[in-house]
Amino acid sequence: MILEGKVWRYGDNVDTDVIIPARYLNSAEPKELAEHCMEDIDPTFAGKVNAGDIIVAGRNFGCGSSREHAPVAIKASGVPCVIADSFARIFFRNAINIGLPLIELGAAVTEIDNGDNVKIDLSKGLVENITKNKYYKVQPLPGFIQEIANAGGLISYIKGDQV
């Protein structure tokens, strides 16, 4: 799958409380969650994000709560992929389980700025910063996790497994 979009750039330790504040967790509806996505770190995000835009952040993205509402809110905002230096583990797991691809790019994220255009080839693990004309290759996900991702998430994977 090839993705291309404009970058929303954030820093280190973006926690799940700023991705989707708990005051909105009285709903689990993806559309409602998307309306408040990133609200406490960037109140402009929900109103201005376009389908296909890509979030790029620093270390430990998604730290904190286990709320799956966080990757759900990002996905429902139209963001097809998050690139970060590193991800917190529960967020990583949740994103794979709900079918939001993640790319762990390491320190090279510092070369990507807000507003850059990036292109991602998920199956080959390639990231291209079109604006800066730079290319990166990332480690593909372990096979078993790719199978979950390819099935579209954990539930479809389990249903397939059962047959």
Binding site: A28, G64, S65, S66, R67, E68, P71, I90, R93, N94, N97, I98, G153, L154, I155, I158
Partner: peptide, 26 residues
């Protein structure tokens, strides 16, 4: 547990960790 502080139960010598709702449902 679908709560990040599930790791509390490590205090009694168990392995305990937080997961998301999909993992819990599965």
């Amino acid at each position: 547990g679908a709560d990040s502080h599930t790791c509390t139960y490590g205090a009694v010598g168990a392995f305990a960790t937080g997961v998301g709702s999909t993992d819990m449902g599965a």
